[in-house]
């Protein structure tokens, strides 16, 4: 289950379907950065997929991260509503349902190596958050 494949671990069907449907390789503008409160997350739709986008301010610089919104432990799309922080310096979000933590950069579950979520590339261009249409493999 935890094999480092190109497909997201917990929700392979919707994610691959969306990336196929929309065609690969394009930045999609999603929202203005100021729609996300510093240190918090929002959910966005990318085709059928719900994506959690987080705005983290480190040393005064805004960074954005994006994960599949689905909590792999419950199958419910809630990760965008979790609390963002760090564990031993690793940026992460904690699921609001049962509090497992997921690394923002890799999607890896910090409490259970057998679990994880897909990661999306995200960037800010002229104050607008953009997502790369397809998720990429999460690092092992």
């Amino acid at each position: 289950m935890a094999a480092p494949t190109a497909a997201p671990t917990a929700a392979p069907a919707p994610a691959s379907a969306s990336s196929t449907d929309l065609g690969a390789g394009a930045w999609v503008p999603v929202c203005r950065l100021d729609r996300i409160a510093p240190g918090a997350g929002v959910a966005a739709r990318l085709g059928d997929v719900a994506v959690a986008i987080y705005r983290v301010v480190v040393d005064g610089v805004d960074r954005v991260y994006a994960l599949d919104d689905r909590d792999p432990f419950t199958g419910v799309r809630v990760l965008s509503r979790g609390i963002v922080g760090d564990r031993d310096g690793v940026l992460k979000v904690s699921s609001p349902l049962h509090k497992q933590s997921f690394a923002l950069a890799t999607g890896a579950c910090l409490d259970d190596p057998a679990r994880g979520v897909a990661v999306f590339d995200a960037r800010v261009v002229d104050g607008v958050v953009e997502l790369w249409r397809a998720s990429r493999a999460r690092a092992a």
């Binding site: 240190g39 983290v56 480190v58 979790g82 922080g85 760090d86 564990r87 904690s94 509090k99 933590s101």
Partner: peptide
């Protein structure tokens, strides 16, 4: 650090 789900609330 940045905080977490324990200290932030």
């Amino acid at each position: 650090g940045l905080g977490c789900e324990v200290c932030k609330p």
